[in-house]
Simulated scan of single mutants.
Amino acid sequence: MDASSAKDALRRIVGAARWVFAPLALACLAFAAWHARDSIGATLVRAQPSALATAIALWTLSHAFAPVASRIVLGALGAHVRYRELLAIHVARLPARYLPGGIWHTVSRVADLQQRGVGRAELATMVAAENVLPPATAALLGGALLLGAGVARDASLVALAAGGTLLAAALALARQAVVRRRARLEPRSVLLAAAATIVFWSIAATAFAAYWLAFADLRDSAPLVAVAGVYLVAWAVGFVSFFAPQGIGVFESMAALFLAEDVGLADAAVLAAGFRVVVLAADAIAWAMLQAWRGWRRARAN
């Protein structure tokens, strides 16, 4: 089989897999909601509806900023995919987050972008950026918030050092690639993508703080700046814990360790786990909004 035939065969396989992948991802999203029904019920009963709705709305809004860093990276590499297209791909593939393994949202997005002609080198660089910049910026922003709140000073300094090291490594690799002409991603593009990621994390951390406010007995337990910082640092630790897909267990444990003094270890862990209900609801809403918009466009075209 020559190279052209192999590419055609691979393209057909990917196309067929996409038809199977979408319903499977939706089934896993529905299963995740069913599996979390007790947690959803407990959260709804205990939480103040307006604050909970605010948290869900903020996380839904955060999806609008999620593809910005990837748009900057791909644009710097010469792959000019429109932001609107990247956003549609990101939202359409949200159910894939709930497939076992925790990698399928990225895998499905890469397949979609390959279908649109984006090269392998550009996609590999995008994936690398998406795996370095989020934990780096979450650790930096979270550490800064904790330090500013005067909470967990040692942990905040560790987070700042870790985030700074990751970001410095990304800048060094980008500079080396430019010097050797293996890519056109310059350090300034890395910094722009990092800034875009910080905007995303600012919204996400605010969503967690709003979620925290939804529980009347927690409103005076810790400064909201510290709560937002705890979320970011705990998420960063969960992300780099490769043995735990999507940081499940690690994120909750880290958040509980920071917040246990205020609400108790067990209650803090349960509350941190409950935030996944907010994320699940926001993901489902964003996906449904995209489907409604696409349906409206099809109806208008006809």
Rank of each mutant, 00 (worst) to 15 (best):
L145A: 13
T106L: 14
A149W: 09
S108A: 15
E130H: 11
R71S: 14
I103Y: 14
V110L: 12
I103A: 15
A69T: 01
W104E: 08
A136M: 07
V68S: 10
A57I: 07
H63N: 15
T125F: 02
R93S: 14
V91A: 12
A138D: 01
W59Y: 15
L77F: 00
L141F: 11
A92T: 04
P67D: 03
R120L: 10
L123Q: 10
A96C: 15
V73P: 02
V68P: 12
L141T: 06
A88D: 04
A76V: 01
A139P: 01
V68R: 12
G101C: 12
E122G: 15
P134Y: 04
I56Q: 00
T60V: 06
G142S: 09
H105D: 09
R97Q: 14
L86N: 08
D112R: 08
R93P: 03
V107L: 13
L123I: 10
A88G: 05
Y83F: 13
A66P: 00
H90T: 14
G117E: 05
A136F: 05
L86M: 15
R97T: 08
E130S: 15
V132S: 14
L146I: 03
G119R: 10
A79R: 10
A138T: 00
A111Y: 04
R120A: 11
S62F: 05
R71F: 04
S108Y: 05
A149L: 08
S62H: 13
A88K: 01
A129Y: 02
A64W: 08
V81N: 06
L74W: 04
V107I: 11
P67G: 02
V118Y: 07
D112L: 10
H80L: 02
R120V: 08
I89D: 11
R71V: 14
R116C: 10
G142F: 07
V73F: 02
V73Y: 00
R71H: 14
I72L: 14
A139R: 00
I103F: 15
P134E: 02
R97L: 15
V110H: 03
G78K: 07
G148C: 09
T60L: 13
A149H: 06
A64P: 00
E85K: 06
L77S: 08
R71I: 08
P67Q: 03
I72M: 06
V110W: 06
I89K: 01
A149V: 06
A129Q: 09
H105S: 10
H105M: 12
L145V: 07
W104P: 13
V132G: 08
T60I: 00
P100H: 04
E130L: 12
T137H: 02
G119A: 15
G143W: 05
G142N: 06
L77R: 13
A138H: 04
W59M: 10
V81H: 02
I89A: 14
T106R: 05
L87A: 08
L140Q: 07
A121Y: 03
G142P: 09
G101I: 10
A136D: 03
L58V: 05
P134M: 01
H105G: 13
